[in-house]
Design a protein around this nucleic acid. Structure first.
Lengths: 340, 340
DNA sequence: ACTCGCTCTGCACTCGTTTGCAAAGCTGCG
DNA sequence: CGCAGCTTTGCAAACGAGTGCAGAGCGAGT
């Protein structure tokens, strides 16, 4: 900010050479210097409120002690808990976090990735992966330390931490089936993401296993995980067919969009139609009606992703591992027996 | 991350000296170099996907092109929009944002502030100010570029951007008075913040102006802006007195806490008691009941704060100015005429 | 008295970039 | 042909810290 004291000034004040001061302050090398000298230097540092210049240090050591985090959009309530998980773990290890919002734009993502490179981040945690994301595939191949959270890339060895989408949707569908629903719709998420695709696949599969079978007319794809796209998608389902008695939304935001359309059309949730979301994002327990949804441990996803990155920063040769965290169904008031 | 190409390599490939390459790539100095050379260098840079090492540059220029953002807690839905506002403006100007969560802990705040110093941030935007915050007062006095958002420090010249708390509460109270309420309670926020204090003062003042006068038994202070503390505070009000017919909460989170206690006690909102929040944070329009609240332009607060910081980075001598952004009352379903 | 070995300190260079200064090359004019 | 004046380029020295290597100082052992 403003004329921070430098190591040279600390050294002068302590009456030693900068080299000595450097070593005295650095735990890894302080064994090389006389303990009386160390005390002198430390005293001087304290008096000047000396903070080693991380920039200069990074230049020499080629480690910036910072990592970049790529998000679609921080204002999506899904992400703050993930970010907190990441930051808490990383901060404890002395790392600083740089957050960048891609707004789902691959060009922007590339540009942001480059500015992260420019800032010499030691690694990247990305929540923005698309199934065929060439950027991450290539970056990973080139040896960039990278961990994917929340979403993966198809058929790639990039380490990742995600929730159990498959099992989450299965639980949701079974819950509805057990309540007696047979006309169950799915508003799927964007199919260029593993989350959107896995959840859709799990929906179909679980319905098959239940002996009901998915009706294609009851499946619509929202091409973004947003209320607006969710509303649009559920509208096509409702227009095209006899209304379903239950809907599984690919995430909570899409569920919110469904709720809006239900209200517009005079459909009461849950009386006329049941609804299940996904994520259990903050405050969906206080909606009207409180939303039945699949709880995903977002903080842990972030924390685990950060730990995984830390491991890989320590030992780059570590084999890529992928973690799937368990999810759970939270039954609230948006799901009841089908009408009639 | 991994062996990024350096300026030297670009220069070699283009067959020029590093100095020339540096100048060719820098718009501010490119007028000093032959346009044919510039093209050569740019081509080389493109081929190598060269990214200037921001760390090395920062070391030389003494500007890191980064700014720190101090927040209480990113998972409080209030802050993501502020952060987005900040980042959008800052990113456009080439700055990177470092986010740090203080969790309301002054020691942690100090530690984080120091790590920001260590990273040579060019300035700081803080949403964590307490009324008597010595850290910011001293930092500002020492010439650190700093802008406060959302909250201010008492009697200090630190530039700031906040919403119009005074007017917001006045509108809320008047709205309730117009509906016919006379027993109006206030669950105030922490009194060591300007937001908590200003809102309380505005509450009293507006009630006085309305000729009703604030009943001390109807005022409780929550010592954090959280649901839990809000619940605790409203409980003391309800225990101690004949229940109010309306409550003004110092923010939406506190309002949520009130809602919980109402539900516990079998009080229906709005039939038995009306409730007004503050902030209009995401999704309070979808609560049961949709919350009447004061809308604060959080994104703009962040964006304006960032612009203000940018100005001051350009010209440090700029007089400190403080901006108050207009707020508006959003009437939804949580406020109706008093019962009976 | 001499060497050996140990602890501790300092010199000098390095990281990748920017920048003041000097010099080289070119143009055009007298 | 010479020289001023311009454009263009290169040299060298920074920025603040880390680090291999040399050497100073000292005590002990022979």
């Amino acid at each position: 900010m403003t004329n921070s004291p430098t190591l040279k000034e600390v050294a002068r004040r302590a009456g030693v050479h900068v080299t000595t001061a450097s070593r005295a302050l650095n735990p890894a090398t302080s064994s090389l210097v006389n303990s009386a000298t160390i005390r002198k230097v430390q005293a001087a540092a304290r008096e000047l409120r000396y903070q080693p210049n991380a920039i200069a240090r990074g230049l020499k050591t080629a480690r910036s002690m910072s990592v970049g985090v790529l998000l679609p959009d921080l204002t999506n309530p899904l992400f703050p808990p993930i970010v907190r998980g990441i930051e808490d773990v990383l901060a404890a290890a002395g790392y600083t976090t740089l957050i960048a919002n891609t707004d789902h734009d691959p060009d922007r993502q590339l540009a942001l990735f480059d500015t992260l490179r420019a800032r010499q981040v030691d690694g990247v945690i990305a929540a923005t992966a698309r199934r065929d994301d060439r950027l991450f595939i290539e970056a990973h191949r080139y040896g960039v330390r990278i961990v994917l959270v929340n979403r993966r890339v198809d058929g790639s060895e990039i380490p990742s931490v995600v929730g159990d989408d498959q099992h989450g949707v299965a639980m949701a569908v079974r819950h509805l089936v057990e309540l007696g629903h047979t006309r169950i719709a799915h508003v799927a998420g964007p199919q260029d993401t593993t989350t959107g695709r896995t959840r859709l696949r799990a929906f179909r599969q679980t319905l098959d296993e239940a002996g009901i079978g998915a009706d294609p007319a009851l499946i619509a794809v929202a091409d973004e995980f947003t209320e607006a796209r969710g509303a649009k998608a559920i509208t096509t389902v409702l227009n095209a067919t006899a209304p379903p008695t239950a809907v599984v939304a690919a995430n909570d935001l899409i569920a919110l969009g469904c709720l809006d359309v239900f209200a517009e059309r005079g459909l009461s949730c849950p009386r006329d139609v049941s609804l299940v979301g996904f994520n259990d994002m903050p405050f969906v327990d206080r909606l009207a009606p409180p939303l039945t949804t699949v709880r995903v441990p977002h903080y842990q996803i972030g924390a685990e992703g950060a730990r995984m990155l830390l491991e890989r920063l320590g030992d780059p040769e570590l084999p890529a591992k992928s973690i799937t965290l368990p999810v759970s169904l939270v039954v609230r008031k948006s799901t009841v027996r089908p009408p009639g």
